[in-house]
């Protein structure tokens, strides 16, 4: 190879074609996905989440929760996602259209969280896990403030194991946002594209 400009052009094309094909191609296909309107349910899905939950996604991202948790349910029959109770159906692109930073994740040292809000209705267990940790989950005490109760206890205080008498544990704004976000995660609505393809029915035999 002798031709410098040809090498340069080739390099640029190699970069451009893969970027255009994979990234811009996918953007062209999925970039304009809209919520699915269901007359029976009287609403559009996925639904938008509260501001607190939306802020919680940033906390989830900056703490690096995606290093151990995924948010993508694989189709029934591919892995054991359904059998583990993570979701009845596979996640589809439409599930993520309102998320500023979809957190698909790439590692499962902990459970998948795509549908956590459907199976976990109360915030109590989540606060207990975040504060006290478990055999497989770190205790993030920095997300809480432990303070002496002066006068009325805070309405935001949460029950945690091993709290000293006369003290209360109050989740910080970040912890509340994180928990609100986790409880907002739901893929309960069944989109048409998420349903498995029905097996093709055999054509009735022609009458002889």
């Amino acid at each position: 190879m002798k031709n410098g400009p040809l090498l340069f052009t080739g390099l640029f094309l190699a970069f451009l074609i893969s970027f255009a094909g994979l990234v811009l191609g996918a953007h062209g296909q999925l970039g304009r996905l809209v919520p699915y309107h269901d007359d029976t349910e009287g609403g559009s899905f996925p639904q938008r989440v509260s501001g607190l939950a939306a802020r919680g996604q940033a906390v989830y991202a900056d703490l690096g929760c995606a290093a151990c948790h995924t948010q993508q349910v694989r189709r029934p029959g591919f892995g054991s996602d359904k059998d583990r109770g993570w979701g009845e159906r596979q996640s589809v692109a439409r599930d993520y259209i309102h998320q500023a930073r979809p957190q698909l994740g790439a590692s499962r040292l902990g459970p998948d969280l795509a549908n956590l809000g459907s199976r976990q209705k109360s915030d109590e267990a989540l606060y207990a896990l975040l504060h006290g940790g478990s055999a497989t989950h770190p205790a993030y005490k920095f997300l809480f403030e432990t303070r002496t109760i002066a006068g009325e206890p805070s309405p935001k205080a949460v029950k945690v194991a091993g709290a000293a008498r006369g003290t209360e544990t109050v989740p910080t704004e970040r912890a509340r946002a994180l928990v609100a976000y986790l409880l907002s995660l739901s893929t309960a609505y069944d989109y048409p594209e998420a349903k498995p393809l029905a097996p093709i029915a055999k054509a009735p035999e022609a009458k002889k």
């Binding site: 970027f19 990234v23 996918a26 999925l30 970039g31 692109a93 993520y96 500023a100 979809p102 698909l104």
Partner: peptide, 23 residues
């Protein structure tokens, strides 16, 4: 430059982000 543009400065929508991140 391309990755930071489509992922961080003018993020593409939904799962196009993980696709761009894979690229």
């Amino acid at each position: 430059m391309a990755s930071q543009a489509v992922l961080l400065w003018w993020p593409v929508r939904g799962v196009v982000q993980p696709i761009a991140a894979g690229w």
